[in-house]
Amino acid sequence: MKALKGMNYPASKQDLVQKAKQNNASQDVIQTIEKLPQDQFNSPTDVQKAWGQGRK
Rank of each mutant, 00 (worst) to 15 (best):
P37V: 08
K35H: 10
A11D: 04
K5H: 14
K49I: 13
K21L: 11
A3C: 07
K56M: 14
N24W: 00
Q22V: 08
G54M: 07
V17Y: 01
N8D: 10
P37K: 09
Q14V: 10
A20H: 12
S43E: 06
K5N: 07
W51E: 01
R55F: 05
Q48I: 05
T32Y: 00
T45Y: 00
Y9K: 12
A20R: 10
D15W: 03
K56H: 11
G54Y: 00
S43K: 13
N42A: 11
R55V: 15
A3H: 12
K21A: 13
Q27Y: 09
P10F: 11
K19I: 11
F41Q: 06
P44H: 03
K19L: 04
Y9M: 06
Q14F: 03
D39Q: 11
P44F: 00
N23L: 04
Q27G: 14
N24R: 09
V29H: 00
R55Q: 14
I33N: 03
Y9L: 06
E34D: 08
T45N: 03
A50M: 01
A25G: 09
G6Y: 12
M1F: 07
Q31G: 10
K5S: 12
V47K: 03
E34N: 05
D39F: 00
G6E: 06
P10Q: 11
S12F: 05
D46P: 08
L36N: 08
L36Q: 11
R55C: 07
S26P: 03
A25F: 01
F41D: 00
A25W: 02
Q22H: 02
Q18N: 13
P44N: 10
N23I: 13
N23F: 00
N42G: 12
N42D: 03
K13V: 06
A11P: 01
Q27C: 01
P10L: 04
Q27K: 12
A25H: 09
R55M: 15
P37D: 06
Y9I: 07
S43R: 08
N24K: 11
L36D: 05
A20Y: 08
T32G: 02
